[in-house]
Design a protein around this nucleic acid. Structure first.
Length: 753
DNA sequence: GTGACTCACTTTTTT
DNA sequence: AGTGAGTCAC
């Protein structure tokens, strides 16, 4: 926990502008830096040239970053606006900003602390015209972007349904993460499928351009393009930011690497902070090589290793360390605990997910009564967001206040997206995804047929969907009338919406469209909740307006609001001050810490997740994720697993996670994971057996989703679902060659491996 | 064009 | 178990 004084040293600003030389060395270093250990101090004071800080879990990484900024400004006299610090979440950015202000006072605000994505948005809002595009672009979220991709699939005469679209969307994202434009993707394509995908990528980009929209990947990719093709623009930012700090460097992907490189290639004052053991975003294109190769890429780099852990007890740290030590592809590193041994890690074997929830919540309730514990001391982590439900039910049962971080974003709720889509359309009439979304919400008699026809016209005449639709208003039939009414509605809003803030604009939309009245008519608990959410949205817009009034307004507040909505996540709204138990995925937990942590669902197929058990690298990432989860705990850590779990509506037999058996016995109490192994499933316990040993699959034994099996006729496949139990147990299996089949376990003679 | 119904699929993790 | 897409009758 950060514990710096709120005022650093008297007369901070008296020393502004003084160089370190003026202050001499160690002796005259301001008092506050005595809080740092020698390595941390070195990381803070090595201000010139490239610096890699390998900061293990709990080693005071954020403290180093904030003190470094304080040092640069307060001691070296660097103007705050020449410093940029980039983080991964808005929350981390805000936290860092606050701490810097604590250290240096409000005048340090000129330092730019923000995420890669927000930084890119701000740059693009100023400079995107250099790429021949308009500054008024909108940011498409996942759903909009998937919708757009489906449109482009249609253009290619391909089936836009389900799986393929998602896979392709993912593929395009990977290209963007790698910094590749469509033509580069096409060049590197080695097979027909890749070629075709690259073509779809090209037309997808075309559609985005038509809608004047950027997806998440574009924010980074287009900024990289800007820097590639416009040295004068790059030069401006290189000079502006003479000192660059990057947090969570192990999670950067290739475009981000390129951006960082470009920005720092002139002054070379680059400080990156990261921990290879906490790299958990490879699936999103993060390239662990960025940190592993740092010393090669920057031959003159200084390296500081922070290996003292101030957060966790020895037991927790050793347990987590023992788990991650099983990774082969990992530089040798061991953390030293500064705190005492502490209590053992606790293991709990639950009958099912409800028993698991009851145990965890019971534990929290009884612990909250002792030792001055407050509810915000407690956190529950899981691998997948869907696991929050039984926990929430249990918390509700006992009236324990809690907050679920992540999962469905507030701004992803249908009603919220609808109303925001009206604003988006008003701000950017080219936004066809927004138009599609709201054209008939609430119902106004403009249905599928009309939209389909308008789409065809839009495509043929190369006009926007809105323009195409406008052609219908001349028709003297019912459709024509409905369309006219719709355009009148838009016009009645468009004039005033530009002159008012987001709060009023939302009110206007709700009023004119009759959206709330439509919900009220439904009069169900569901619709009431939606109305409640919309009120929350309006209130949130009011807050946004309020906090953004004093900032220098470069663009209409309404547009800033829409940017923020696109980039903000629930995680950004966690504040440790509220009296609540926190529930979140292990990914969301990164960067946080809690005195008491429960890590639930430690089962094969869940954690490590089934989707990751295919290859070795993915398993290692799961293991790092487990390490991240465990090392969030300061004093108390409980790992739980269930022997049986409801998943996809059916009951499934679960096998304890291999990570459990990687925690040395003497470091934990409670049952051993081996205790509950059923039959030959024991052979499936460790990674060794996963790769090399085989067993015969019998009913109820190890038949959980995600387990790979081999069938004499159908070949290899992966279990999707187990139905029933005992001799009648059946398995739904997706075979690599033969497709999805249902087999009776007893007769199928399956080998698993 | 709307609403009720069926069915398939979902679950990784997030800016 | 719950959602979203697709189908069908009005």
């Amino acid at each position: 926990m950060f514990s710096g004084p709120s005022v650093l040293w008297p007369g901070t600003f008296a020393i502004l502008g003084l160089s370190e030389a003026t202050w001499g060395s160690e002796v005259s270093t301001p008092e506050i830096f005595k809080d740092l250990n020698p390595e941390q101090l070195k990381a803070v004071k090595t201000t010139e040239g490239p610096l890699l800080v390998v900061a293990g879990a709990g080693s005071g990484k954020t403290r180093v970053l904030t003190y470094r900024i304080a040092y640069l400004v307060g001691v070296c006299g660097i103007p705050p606006e020449q410093i940029i610090a980039v983080t991964f979440t808005n929350k981390a950015a805000r936290e860092m900003q606050e701490r810097v202000v604590d250290l240096l006072g409000p005048d340090s605000k000129g330092t730019w602390v923000s995420t890669f994505h927000s930084t890119c948005v701000r740059i693009l809002r100023r400079e995107i015209n250099h790429l021949g595009r308009s500054r008024g672009f909108v940011i498409y979220d996942e759903a909009d972007s998937l919708g757009t991709l489906k449109e482009s699939l249609k253009l290619h005469g391909l089936d836009p349904k389900g799986h393929d679209a998602r896979r392709l969307r993912w593929r395009i994202d990977q290209w963007k993460n790698a910094g590749e434009l469509p033509h580069q993707a096409a060049e590197s394509a080695t097979d027909l499928e890749a070629e075709q995908s690259a073509e779809v990528y090209a037309s997808y980009q075309r559609l985005l351009l038509d809608a004047n929209a950027l997806d998440f990947g574009d924010l980074l990719l287009l900024t990289a393009m800007l820097f590639r093709n416009h040295p004068e623009v790059l030069g401006h930012y290189q000079d502006r930011w003479a000192y660059v700090l990057i947090d969570e460097y192990q999670d950067t992907n290739r475009v981000q690497y390129e951006l960082v490189n470009a920005l720092t290639s002139k002054h070379r004052n680059l400080c990156v902070v990261g921990d290879p053991d906490q790299s958990v975003y490879a699936w999103r294109g993060a390239d662990i090589r960025n940190i592993l190769d740092f010393e090669r890429d920057y031959a003159d780099a200084n390296v500081v290793v922070l290996d003292r852990n101030y957060r966790s007890t020895q037991a927790i740290l050793s347990g987590a360390g023992a788990v991650v030590a099983n990774n082969v592809d990992r530089p040798e590193k061991e953390m030293k605990a500064e705190r005492g041994q502490g209590e053992q890690i606790h293991f709990y074997r639950a009958e099912n997910e409800r028993d698991e929830a009851a145990h965890v919540i019971g534990n929290i309730i009884s612990m909250s009564r002792e030792n001055d514990r407050v509810l915000s001391d407690f956190a529950i982590f899981y691998r997948t967001n869907a696991q929050s439900r039984p926990l929430e039910e249990e918390l509700l049962k006992y009236d324990v206040p809690y907050v679920v971080v992540g999962g469905t974003r507030f701004y992803d709720r249908a009603e919220v997206k609808d109303v925001l889509a009206y604003l988006r359309l008003l701000v950017n009439p080219a936004d066809s995804m927004a138009l599609r979304r709201i054209i008939n919400k609430p119902p106004r008699g403009i249905g599928k047929t009309t939209i389909l026809r308008a789409e065809a016209i839009a495509q043929r005449d190369e006009i926007s969907l809105l323009e195409a639709l406008r052609l219908y208003s001349d028709q003297e039939n019912r459709t024509g009338k409905n369309v006219r009414t719709f355009f009148q509605l838009l016009e009645s809003m468009s004039e005033s919406v530009h002159d008012v803030g987001p709060e009023e604009a939302l009110g206007l939309v709700l009023d004119k469209t009759g959206y709330i009245r439509h919900l009220e008519r439904a009069n169900t608990p569901e619709s009431e909740m939606r109305i409640e959410n919309l009120r929350e949205l309006v209130a949130g817009a009011g807050d946004f307006e309020f906090t953004n009034l004093e900032e220098g307004i470069e663009r209409p507040v309404l547009e800033l609001f829409l940017d923020q909505v696109a980039l903000v996540t629930d995680l950004d709204n966690v504040d440790g001050l509220t009296e609540r138990v926190s529930l979140m995925s292990a990914h969301s937990a990164k960067g946080l810490e809690f005195p008491v942590v429960h890590l639930v669902g430690m089962e094969e197929g869940l954690f490590p997740h089934a989707a990751s058990s295919r290859d070795h690298e993915a398993i290692e990432e799961e293991r790092r994720l487990c390490y991240v989860g465990m090392t969030r705990a300061m004093e108390h850590l409980t790992l739980t697993w269930a022997e049986e779990r409801r998943r996809f509506g059916g009951r499934e037999i679960a096998i304890p996670s291999r990570f459990l058996s990687e925690v040395p016995d003497h470091l934990h109490d409670g049952p051993s994971p081996e205790d509950s192994f059923r039959g030959p499933a024991a052979a499936y316990g460790g990674e060794r057996s996963l790769d090399y040993e085989y067993g015969q699959l019998e009913p109820d034994a190890g038949a959980s989703a995600g387990v790979r099996v081999r069938h004499a006729i159908f070949g290899e496949g992966v279990i999707l679902k187990s139905i029933g139990s005992g001799p009648k147990q059946k398995l739904r299996i997706r075979f690599d060659r033969a497709g999805v089949k249902t087999v009776v376990t007893k007769f199928a003679n399956l080998e698993f491996f």
